[in-house]
């Protein structure tokens, strides 16, 4: 995964103005796990972290004390949030979202990933333009969803007047909770060419959305109080880890042969215990 970081300077060096308190400063660091070979993951990283306000960094090497290393790195870069893609067994992708100095952090299981590379997703938009974030109304249902919403707003949104951002808005992010998962979509806002002048004054009647990608679905597992650690604030009560799912599947498969053998012996026993009655016509034609 040759996604080396390209920009070594941190974004936090945005000029400090007088209205600084009004503008929240935030920067994001995105990491990948060392043993990431999952293709999907790279694409997600590229496309979400690839918005230029975020820093991309090398893979994290150490296996144990991952959290501590990450925190250190974040501090080194003086960033305020972190996205960390963790890949296990080359098939399960987890996403950590963390607010860095003192939490909270969330761990998601990522599934149903479609990358930007897919040719079915035909949209395209400016790199670094600020996305419009849309949330479905059920984010206000529970406390933990509210927290997640705030974190997503801060992490996925591009800060205003960011050095590398563009002054236009040509794409929309969709965050929607369906079936207790957060579904993510990214659409390009497209308007027919000859109407782009009119749009400045009129409405957006003829605008259509074209999906840019990526798509993924986040299943929150746990929310921690600190960044990459700390007390657990929330635990998904419905969550089963993919490992468990696979184990169950395997067990089911393993049972198949045992069942067959068992059925065979049962049949044998049954035949032995209920012998056929001697046929009275057996030697009728034998003379």
């Amino acid at each position: 995964m040759g996604k080396k970081r390209k920009h070594s300077e941190t974004v936090a060096s945005a000029p400090a103005k007088k209205d600084a308190p009004e503008r929240p400063q935030r920067t994001i660091l995105g990491w990948k796990d060392k043993n990431n070979t999952n293709n999907n993951e790279a694409q997600v990283t590229e496309s979400t972290v690839g918005f230029k306000n975020k820093e991309k960094d090398n893979k994290v090497e150490s296996k144990e004390s991952k959290g501590a290393t990450l925190n250190e790195l974040v501090e080194l870069k003086s960033c305020s949030s972190c996205l960390f893609f963790e890949c296990r067994k080359q098939k399960d992708l987890y996403l950590w979202m963390a607010k860095c100095p003192n939490g909270p952090s969330v761990k998601f299981l990522v599934n149903a990933v479609h990358t930007m590379e897919e040719l079915k997703l035909t949209g395209n938009h400016l790199q670094g333009s600020r996305p419009i974030l849309t949330f479905s109304s059920n984010f206000d249902k529970n406390a933990h969803w509210k927290l997640l919403k705030e974190m997503i707003t801060q992490i996925f949104g591009v800060p205003k007047e960011h050095r590398k951002s563009k002054p236009y808005h040509d794409h929309v992010f969709v965050f929607s909770i369906v079936d207790d998962h957060i579904w993510f979509r990214n659409y390009q806002i497209s308007v027919p060419h000859n109407e782009s002048i009119k749009i400045a004054r009129g409405g957006l009647e003829n605008s259509t959305l074209i999906e840019v990608g990526p798509r993924f679905c986040l299943n929150p597992i746990k929310i921690f109080g600190g960044s990459f650690g700390g007390p657990t604030l929330y635990e998904n009560p419905f969550y089963i880890s993919p490992n468990q799912i696979r184990a169950i599947e395997k067990k089911k498969k393993a049972g198949k042969y045992a069942k067959k053998v068992k059925a065979k012996t049962r049949r044998k026993v049954h035949e032995l215990s209920n012998p056929l009655e001697p046929d009275e016509f057996a030697d009728m034609w034998k003379e």
Partner: peptide, 18 residues
């Protein structure tokens, strides 16, 4: 702790609830 202060304008978050 983490949420933006109240005086932060909408333009900074750009988020819409639907």
């Amino acid at each position: 702790d983490i949420s933006f202060p109240d005086n932060v304008g909408w333009i900074h978050r750009l988020s819409v609830d639907i």
